[in-house]
């Protein structure tokens, strides 16, 4: 990272792409060290057996936004005067949810005369993980409900080395969980069930070049469920098969790019078994494995605030009249001004 001279900056980050409404204060000191001062959030919980309903999630976010915002300021012992810049999640995500965060950010920016920045949510997962783990130039495995991608930085942008051809790993876990009657997100429940089994059932393993595919595995797993197979065994087998696939494609990226550092981030990064398998893969190649701390793996305001700070520091400015949201905003469209 290059180092323009600047005073200490503090950013208020607002996250609202999907089920989480988050608000966080993050600072960047004169040495470019980032610190998360506070991070508050409220998560919309759909009823068991169903997924996110955008309107319901929007309603939740509208109800909790001011409370979450005030809590993040109070925990940081700060007021709006000490905030230098306001960042919101500009996308990608669910339209109704994104709009709540954007409205909050716009209102604050207009009322308090603060600069506003639209941060890409996926870039937030990557850059916050880099900040917290001190990774410098890693192969990134981004695993969540919205993404399953293997990324490398090159020529000014984070670029897709590989990406799921159909559903994400988060969708695989959630949709299977839903079929079994659990509430979304179901990653934690599936991990708990899996830890009780060692009975491996062979499931479809699909990798096309650098692109994994999980829809066939989901169909097979649901079929096993309705044929009365043991739930713990199916969960164990889903994790073992899907995570092997992720390990293989990550290893392919390491071999191809000749990088020697892996960074795991996104909501599914919290899974202990996935961490274990990647640790083993990296060990066998002599590569370094890093993972975002569990507390910040899921969606949070801090990831938005951190990207907001980096963008602001490198001269990005957004006119409030152009502070729109974009449901489709692919992470490889974002110029990463702070990396070379």
């Amino acid at each position: 990272m290059n180092k323009p001279k600047h005073k200490k900056l503090t950013c208020l980050g607002i996250e609202s792409t999907a089920h989480t409404f988050g608000s966080s204060l993050v600072s960047l000191d004169e040495e470019n060290q980032g610190t998360i001062i506070s991070d508050s959030r409220s998560v919309y919980q759909p009823p068991p057996g169903s997924g996110i309903h955008p309107r319901e999630a929007y309603q939740h976010h509208s109800d909790v936004c001011s409370g979450v915002l005030i809590e993040s300021l109070r925990k940081a012992k700060m007021d709006m005067d000490s905030v230098d810049v306001i960042a919101y999640a500009g996308g990608p995500g669910l339209g109704p949810c994104l709009r709540v965060g954007a409205v909050v950010a716009r209102s604050l920016a207009a009322y308090y005369h603060k600069p506003i920045i639209a941060a890409n949510h996926a870039i937030g997962h990557i850059e916050l993980a880099c900040m917290l783990t001190r990774a410098t130039n890693p192969i990134v495995l981004l695993v969540s409900g919205g993404h399953t991608a293997i990324l490398a930085f090159s020529n000014g942008r984070w670029r897709f080395f590989g990406e799921t051809l159909d559903i994400t790993i988060g969708q695989l876990l959630d949709q299977f969980g839903r079929a079994a009657g659990y509430a979304s997100p179901s990653g934690a429940i599936i991990e708990r069930c899996a830890s009780k089994s060692e009975e491996y059932l062979l499931l479809p393993y699909t990798l096309k070049g650098n692109d994994p595919s999980f829809s066939g595995m989901l169909t097979s797993a649901k079929r096993l469920l309705s044929s009365g197979k043991n739930m713990d065994d199916i969960c164990f087998s889903i994790q073992e098969t899907a995570f092997s696939n992720l390990c293989e494609v990550t290893e392919r990226a390491l071999a191809f790019t000749e990088h020697d550092e892996v960074l795991l981030t996104g909501g599914v990064a919290a899974n202990t078994r996935l961490q274990e398998m990647l640790t083993e893969m990296c060990r066998s190649r002599g590569s370094t494995f890093r993972v975002i701390p569990r507390q910040f793996s899921g969606d949070c305001g801090a990831q938005i605030a951190w990207v907001g700070l980096l963008s602001y520091l490198h001269g990005m400015r957004l006119d409030i009249s152009k502070s729109i949201v974009r449901q489709s905003w692919r992470l490889d469209q974002v110029d990463i001004l702070w990396r070379h």
Partner: peptide, 29 residues
Amino acid sequence: GLSFRSNRLEDKAVDLHLVKQTLESAHSA
């Protein structure tokens, strides 16, 4: 090692998609 036989356009398209993806990620210029 990942080769197989198929006459489906989809499989041929995914094959070409991978070259494109590799070019864009590793040789973007």
